[in-house]
């Protein structure tokens, strides 16, 4: 058991090095270089109050808001303390029932034609802050009507909050739902 001593000492050494020094170093440098990102990309309202994170979606059900993707988090939709997906299998009747129900809600607001998948299928984290431009466009008439705004105004707002592919190559074009809704509240006010 000649190896037992180095085993224990190495264990302590690496705990200090990788579990203490390294995270401390990353925290120090991260906070210094990118304080906003390191702190959670928090959004503040005009009154200075924190209203959420640009990266964490929130639930919206009122007709005047852009509705986000369905969320399967526990307790309530978009619960940041319970990130996760539905884990429903592709042939699970429960998934199909839920999708049908969501489509029904959308159709009731006057949506016709094909439904963008992101609008009726739950995200992996349950906190997905984004919506596809197509899914956002589909909601413009409803929002405009509910808020008494012109469709053009809402459309411009959506467009101005649409991000393209990163570096022109990676990911998918997307709209940040919380940002759009905060902007909607700002102009409505």
């Amino acid at each position: 058991m000649k190896e037992l001593k180095p085993a224990m000492l190495m264990c302590l050494l690496f705990t200090l090095l990788c579990g203490g020094l390294y995270p401390a170093l990353v925290t120090g440098l991260g906070q210094a270089l990118f304080p906003h990102q390191a702190g959670g990309s928090l959004l503040t309202a005009a009154n200075g109050q924190t209203v959420g994170s640009a990266l964490i979606g929130q639930p919206f059900t009122a007709p005047g808001y852009l509705w986000p993707r369905p969320s399967a988090t526990a307790d309530f939709s978009y619960n940041p303390m319970a990130s996760g997906g539905s884990n429903l299998g592709p042939t699970n009747p429960a998934l199909l029932t839920a999708v049908k129900e969501r489509i029904g809600v959308l159709r009731a607001t006057g949506v016709s034609g094909p439904i963008p998948a992101d609008l009726v299928l739950a995200s992996a984290s349950g906190l997905d802050p984004h919506l596809s431009p197509a899914a956002a466009r589909l909601q413009i008439p409803r929002i405009a009507k509910a808020r008494g705004l012109s469709e053009e105004m809402v459309a411009n707002l959506v467009t101005s909050h649409t991000e393209g592919r990163q570096l022109g190559l990676l990911g998918a074009p997307r709209v940040n739902v919380l940002a759009v809704n905060l902007a909607l509240d700002t102009i409505s006010r």
């Binding site: 439904i115 998948a117 299928l121 990911g171």
Partner: peptide, 27 residues
């Protein structure tokens, strides 16, 4: 290609259940 079940319901854009939008299907 998604599933025929979703296609029948008029859902387009691939199988996005349990996926995040920002990465796209490729990511």
């Amino acid at each position: 290609a998604s599933t025929p079940l979703l296609k029948q319901l008029g859902v387009v854009g691939g199988n996005l259940e349990g996926k995040e939008l920002r990465f796209g299907l490729a990511g």
